[in-house]
């Protein structure tokens, strides 16, 4: 395999180790990038244009926020509600960036370029590596392959979605809920987080008849901020032996 640009070679990492990192990262990239098809299809079926779906994938490039923006707009939410929900979901990328800054150790334009590739998958793959050279490799290969595939598959899905007709006939409105659930599922690692998810869902539903579209979801975000003020909610992963 050709050397990956941006990544400095490191004599301490054996070639077999590098190949393993590249293979694993490409695997994650393929699996994640492919579901841009569902984003593209849902976006155009919900009323966005092909160009708008593609600009979202190119510029925003963070799946949960993209689905949220489309979902809130399609549900009749205002521009501030849709934008606010997407931004609140994007806040976690700031925390990822903070962790990655010291791990990757890039400065200047490289750091700026790396920022665009900060997503769940590239962060997870980079932070799982034992040293900086492999962390950089995993970050660039994962982030880069997701970026290329996510954008190609968004275009594909968007063109298909705009040709499909009524989204309800095809069940695409049900697909959006399923997409959010699939994004949520791996985060429900503790009883406390599952309880928060349940309360957030109930709160949002209770507000649906009372507030303009988009506000119920933002209120759930507000709930998370309030709960986060309480020190009992330690973000540390559960210790071994902790019941899940």
């Amino acid at each position: 395999m050709a050397p990956v640009p941006l990544v400095e070679s490191d004599a301490a990492t054996p070639p077999a180790g590098r190949r393993r990192v590249i293979a694993d990262s490409l695997g994650v990239g393929l699996a994640t990038g492919a579901y841009g098809v569902s984003f593209g299809a849902v976006a155009t079926a919900s009323g966005l244009g092909v160009a708008q779906a593609c600009v979202l994938s190119l510029l925003m490039f963070t799946g949960a926020s993209q689905f949220a923006l489309v979902g809130v707009l399609a549900g009749g939410g205002s521009v501030p509600a849709a934008t606010g929900t997407a931004l609140l979901l994007g806040v976690r990328n700031s925390l990822y960036g903070l962790r990655l800054a010291s791990l990757l150790g890039w400065r200047g334009w490289r750091r700026l370029g790396a920022a665009h590739l900060v997503i769940d998958e590239s962060t997870a793959m980079a932070t799982a590596q034992p040293d900086r050279a492999r962390a950089r490799l995993a970050f660039v290969v994962t982030g880069g392959s997701v970026f290329v595939l996510w954008n190609l598959s968004t275009l594909l899905g968007a063109v298909a979605g705009s040709a499909l007709g009524d989204p309800r006939t095809l069940g695409l409105d049900a697909a959006v809920g399923a997409a959010f659930l699939a994004l949520l599922w791996p985060r429900l690692t503790t009883g406390g987080l599952r309880a928060l998810a349940l309360v957030a869902a109930v709160l949002a539903l209770a507000l649906v008849p009372l507030t303009p579209a988009g506000v119920p979801v933002l209120a759930a975000g507000g709930l998370a901020l309030l709960v986060g003020l309480h020190p009992r909610w330690d973000p540390a992963p559960p210790q071994p032996g902790t019941p899940r």
């Binding site: 949220a68 979902g71 549900g75 979901l89 809920g177 869902a201 949002a204 979801v217 998370a224 973000p235």
Partner: peptide
């Protein structure tokens, strides 16, 4: 507190989006 909020935000927002996307039709259930 910031680290806690950053972890809790996506859980609450995604759960609310699942609920609203599945059970809301405009401003009614």
């Amino acid at each position: 507190a910031v680290a806690r909020m950053t972890m809790l935000l996506p859980v609450a927002l995604l759960a609310a989006l699942v609920a609203v996307q599945t059970l809301a039709d405009g401003t009614r259930l």
